[in-house]
Design a protein around this nucleic acid. Structure first.
Lengths: 232, 232
DNA sequence: GCGATGAATCGCACGGTGTACGAGTCATCC
DNA sequence: GGATGACTCGTACACCGTGCGATTCATCGC
């Protein structure tokens, strides 16, 4: 059903002819390209969220006709896929040959991952329903290699990988859905209090008001890493 | 922006008049009600997924006009909220007075939570973007109370709660998005292999082919609980 | 120079969507 | 008998993704 890989007729041509501007329209937009479409889509998503992205609006921002987009892109789903992967781009590993602090590196990697998604909140609602783009795979590869080199046995590797992935995804998604604004959460907690004594414990602990997201994230991650460490 | 609480004019009237069937149509549907709408929406979501739920289709299944739904329901978002909460209903705690195996209880609670969502895969893509319904709150309350009674200090309670929540949500969402079918995952892993040697480690570990979801879930959860246990 | 090719752009139109609006029906109560 | 209010629903509107040609224009073999 969900075939990946753009299979419409269209190949990235080898950057041969540098289309010179048509010179009739002084402020004409640069020509359409997959890259420009994706970049604009990310802008639009940042500004208006998932529902804000429509093909028409996207074309407007690009100064093109709607149907022109479909030459470069399979369909709207494709745009989402590309935008998501774009946002998860990451610089390669620092490539330090020596390997003293694997734990710190893992924490850093995962925090960077999380931060990348939090910078574009729409990405977390997209990710669950989408396949793995190259940038996600590359991040997984890096994590896997680090854990492996740190001494995690092959037999335990997948459990470790999935546990970390699950935790990071869950924490990020939660952060986005509940962390909108202090006011929102205050309102939620108040509604909760108003609901009477049905939820005394979470009301007392002020669960929804807790806003040390980073601290909580790090602590939970620490616990997980403690348990997943080799030769623990 | 996202005001909760149905604010349209409409109150659940106190079950006063039992609308007797109009007797002109022998097989006429029972009258519309919020409950019937939600139940039918869940059926429709189970059968057709998130995109399959349209107000028109929903009305068709209910044998009513489309706009009649809007008397009982604020809008489509409302339907999603209600359907999600409905699916997360749960039986109250066994209410055992004695408290020997808190850990087993927590594991059981979280596995039940996870299972409830996996039974309705659409729920996981809904949850990230939605506020907390009463059934979610009630589950959180139960979890919180259990941990607290088990001896988790108040100061550590929120970290424990969020860590567990994050992990469970992440694992469930991941399970649904990647666990579609063996074929899908085999295809993904193959695509990955075809992509050459860019991802050697995850290719070697066959990360995407691992299908012992339950085992991995339980192991990761165990690690987390080990670290979060009181007086560890 | 000239026709053919094919990449790229885009207008139009179609079938679908959520829902605002207001006109209807009907049981109930004064 | 009239008023009220709960409830149903047909019509209409604006917007959506996208299939289908028609159109433009640079390039290339002749």
């Amino acid at each position: 059903m969900a075939a990946k890989g753009s299979d419409t007729r269209k190949k990235r041509l080898g950057a041969k002819s540098a289309r010179l501007p048509p010179m009739q329209e002084a402020r004409s937009e640069p020509p359409l390209s997959r890259e420009r479409i994706v970049a604009t889509a990310v802008d639009l998503l940042d500004a208006q969220g998932t529902d804000g992205l429509t093909m028409r609006r996207l074309a407007d921002r690009l100064g093109s006709g709607v149907m022109s987009l479909y030459w470069h892109v399979d369909n709207k789903e494709d745009v989402f896929d590309l935008a998501l992967d774009q946002v998860l781009e990451h610089r390669g590993p620092p490539q330090t040959a020596e390997f003293q602090d694997w734990r710190g590196e893992v924490v850093h990697m995962l925090e960077d991952w999380r931060a990348s998604m939090l910078r574009h909140p729409w990405s977390v609602s997209l990710l669950p329903a989408r396949a793995l783009g190259p940038n996600i795979l590359s991040r997984l590869e890096l994590l896997s290699k680090t854990l492996s080199r740190a001494g995690v046995a092959d037999a335990d590797l997948n459990v470790a990988m999935w546990s970390l992935w699950n935790y990071v995804m869950g924490a990020t998604i939660t952060r986005v859905s509940f962390g909108r604004s202090d006011d929102d959460r205050a309102a939620a907690q108040q509604r909760l209090a108003a609901l009477g004594e049905r939820y005394p414990t979470i009301e007392r602990s002020r669960l929804l008001l807790d806003n040390d997201w980073e601290g909580a994230f790090r602590k939970g991650l620490g616990v997980l890493l403690d348990g997943l460490s080799p030769r623990s």
